[in-house]
Simulated assay, not measured.
Amino acid sequence: MRYRVLGGTGIEVSTYCLGTMMFGAVGNPDHQDSVRIIHAALDQGINFVDTADMYSAGESEEIVGKALRDPRRREETVLATKVFFPFGEGPNRGGTSRRWITRAVENSLRRLGTDWIDLYQVHRPDHRTDIEETLDVLGDLVSQGKIRAFGCSAFPAEQIVEAHAVAERRGLRRFRSEQPPYSLLARGIETSVLPVAQRYGMGVLTWAPLAAGFLTGKYRKGRPVDLTSGRAALAPQRFDPALPVNQAKLDAVEELIAVADDIGATLPELAIAFAAAHPAVTSVILGPRTGEQLEGLLKGASLVLTDEVLDRIDAIVPPGTNLYQPDGVWRPASLTDPALRRRPLGDRAAAD
C-alpha cells in the first residue's frame, strides 16, 4: 500500500480509502460481516475510512464505530465523515448552518464512538447558507478538537474558489480536501476541479471509480442486462443498453477491456489504477459490499500505469469528458430549483 499526504494537513493517508456507504441497510446489513471487512482493509494497509451521517440513516457510522472500538485501531485510522443531507423529518435537520452542523457533529461522534473526526466534509454545497457561516463553524470545531480538518464534496470549481476567497478575506480556516466522482467514464473534473484543487493544495478523494458497476466487467456490449435486480432495478435508465448514453459506455468498456488485457490486468484494476494516477488525486475511495469484493479491488493496489497506457485511455475517453453524468454529483440550484429562474408573478405582470 502506498501513502500520500492529504493536502497541506500533514496527515498521511493510504492511496486507497475504504468507503462504507454499502455497510448498513442499503447494502450489507450484517454488522459483524461489515466489521470484518473493515478490519480486513485495515490489516492490508488501508488507514483511511470514509463514511457519512446519511449512509443508511447513521447505521454506517455505527458500524464503523464498532470496527474502531479498539483504541489502537482508532488511533491508527484516519476517519472521515460528512454532513449536509436531511436527517429525519422537519426543518433545520440538514444543510450547513451553524445550528445544524453543531448538532450533527455531536451525533456523528456518538455513533462513531470517538472523541474526534480526522476529516469532516460538507457533503454538498448549500445555496441557502453563506459559505462564511459554514467555514466559521467548521473552524470552531477544529479549535475545540472535535475535528482535525475539514473539506468539501462534489463542489464545482467556482465554489471551491469562492470558499477559499472568503476564508482568506475573513481570516477563516479553509477547505483542505474535495471529494468528487472520477472514473475512466467520467473525467469531467479534469477540466477545472482537479486543477483548482492543485492550485490550492487540497487533497482529493475520488469516488465511483467503477462507474456504478460499468467498469466491473459485468455489463458488456451485446449481452442482455437484467433490469429487475441489483443496481439496475433501482435505476433502469442507467443500465438500459437501448439508451444512447449507455451504448456509449458499453462501447468504451470493450476498448478499455482490451487495454486491461494487454497489460495483464482486470478492468476493475485498470479503473482504480487510473483514478490513482492523476497527480491531483490523494486517495481513491473503494466501496465494497462483501469481503470478496474488497479482495478483488485490492489485487491491483500495486498497479502503475505507463504513459503509453494512459495515452491509449485518452484516445478512448478524451480528458475532461463525461460519457454520463455521475449520479449524485452536485447540480446548481439555479438549474434544479425553478423558483430561482422565475420572477414572482406580480413582478412579471408589472414588467409586462
Rank of each mutant, 00 (worst) to 15 (best):
V5N: 05
G8H: 12
G10M: 09
E12A: 13
V13N: 08
S14A: 08
Y16R: 14
L18P: 01
T20N: 06
M21Q: 14
M21P: 05
F23Q: 06
F23R: 09
A25T: 14
G27E: 09
G27C: 08
D33M: 05
S34K: 13
R36E: 13
H39R: 12
A40H: 12
I46Q: 01
F48H: 08
F48Y: 14
D50N: 14
D53E: 12
M54W: 08
S56L: 04
E59H: 14
I63H: 04
R72A: 14
R73I: 11
R74C: 01
E76Q: 15
L79N: 05
K82H: 10
G88L: 03
E89W: 06
G90C: 04
N92E: 12
R93I: 09
S97N: 12
S97K: 11
R99T: 13
I101F: 01
T102C: 06
T102M: 09
E106C: 00
S108F: 00
L109A: 02
L109Y: 02
D115C: 01
D118K: 04
H123S: 00
R128M: 13
E133Y: 00
T134C: 02
G145Q: 08
G145P: 02
G145I: 11
I147Q: 01
R148K: 15
A149T: 15
S153I: 07
F155K: 04
Q159D: 12
I160A: 09
H164A: 06
A167I: 07
R170Q: 10
R170G: 01
L172T: 12
R174P: 03
P180H: 09
P181H: 02
Y182E: 06
Y182D: 08
G188F: 03
V193G: 02
L194P: 02
P195Y: 00
P195G: 10
A197L: 07
V204R: 00
T206K: 03
L210S: 05
A211Q: 04
A211K: 03
T216L: 11
Y219I: 04
R220N: 06
R220L: 14
K221G: 11
K221P: 13
V225T: 09
D226Y: 13
L227H: 11
R231N: 08
L234A: 14
L234Q: 12
L234M: 10
D240M: 11
D240L: 13
P241C: 12
L243I: 13
V245F: 03
V245N: 07
D251W: 07
D251Y: 04
E254A: 15
E255N: 10
V259G: 00
D261C: 02
D261I: 01
A265L: 05
L267N: 07
A271R: 00
I272H: 04
A273Y: 04
A276L: 15
P279L: 10
V281L: 12
S283F: 01
G287E: 04
P288C: 12
P288D: 07
K299R: 15
A301P: 00
A301L: 03
S302D: 15
L303V: 10
L303K: 05
L303C: 07
V304D: 07
T306K: 05
D307I: 09
L310W: 02
I313E: 05
D314K: 05
A315R: 15
P318N: 00
N322M: 07
V329K: 06
W330A: 10
W330T: 11
R331G: 02
P332W: 03
P332D: 13
T336K: 04
R341P: 03
P344V: 09
L345F: 08
D347A: 14
